[in-house]
Design a protein around this nucleic acid. Structure first.
Lengths: 157, 157
DNA sequence: CCTGAAACATAATGCAC
DNA sequence: GTGCATTATGTTTCAGG
């Protein structure tokens, strides 16, 4: 993971791409004040140096039928053999679980899940999560409203 | 927000774009089995119908100096006038706060924040968050490891 | 609704500086 | 490193099924 020197042009490129991953080199060149060919070359360099993890499309979940987002904190039953391994395998296989983190504190894992509505969330929690033998305890927190969503990490100028 | 009929080609387009927002129409046409021109037209239709919220680039946070991700749950002091408004304004202005949700349960808000390291997280929590007069209580949970991150919502075939 | 071809736009790269 | 010119790719419109 070779660290490379980034200059002001690189920051501007990254900043522009954070908010719109589909910008063309021509569009980038206008925002960044470089020629399109330089944008192309610098972007290649940034990708090769692993500064860019992915280009994602964020879909409109509620238009697609998922009205509910919830966070779920999970405590595993440490008496169950290989509970971590079993849990991780289960997590990977469940598409409604969008994110999963192992965390410090009372719980072992935090999940972000989506569901169609509250009844479906309720049955998802009991049928897909509580039912796992490795899960000892589970607390869900329903999202009422998204106040901020900045997929952009702060960058220098 | 007019609901439109989506067919199998649309699902495939959305599925492909979820994991790579920069796919060209030619590349999409290969994954979807349509001509490039149809991919272009359908994608325009999907965008116009608000099924796509954003194309964003996920940067490598740790390469860029942010080693720590934490979740912070916040309870506001309801005795403070306009505490919600004051809080939301503060949130918007702090770049280390990447996401903020109002939630059900004990806390009022949940945040996802990034920080350079644990000392900087510590001072961020006390100086930028606890210091807000509207904040009554705050609990932070540090992410130890990202187990799953699927920015992809499940789609039909 | 679709494909395919033509006209147009953009991307990638060699080269001169 | 950069811009410019060139060639390779990609996009979009339109005629036709």
């Amino acid at each position: 993971m070779s660290h490379i020197e980034l200059d002001s042009y690189d920051w501007r490129l990254l900043r522009a791409l954070q908010t719109n991953a589909r910008l063309s080199n021509v569009a980038l060149s206008e925002q960044v004040n470089l020629s399109p060919s330089q944008c192309s070359r610098r972007l290649q360099r940034l990708e090769q140096n692993n500064l860019i993890e992915a280009y994602f499309t964020q879909l409109n979940a509620s238009e697609l039928g998922y009205q509910i987002t919830a966070f779920v904190s999970i405590t595993l039953d440490k008496r169950v053999k290989n509970s971590d391994k079993e849990f991780k395998q289960a997590i990977e296989a469940i598409p409604e679980i969008l994110e999963c983190y192992s965390v410090s504190g009372d719980a072992d894992y935090w999940l972000r899940v989506i569901s169609e509505n509250l009844p479906s969330l309720s049955s998802f929690l009991s049928e897909s999560l509580s039912s796992l033998t490795c899960v000892r305890d589970l607390t869900s927190t329903v999202v009422l409203n998204r106040v901020k969503h900045a997929p952009s990490i702060p960058l220098p100028n």
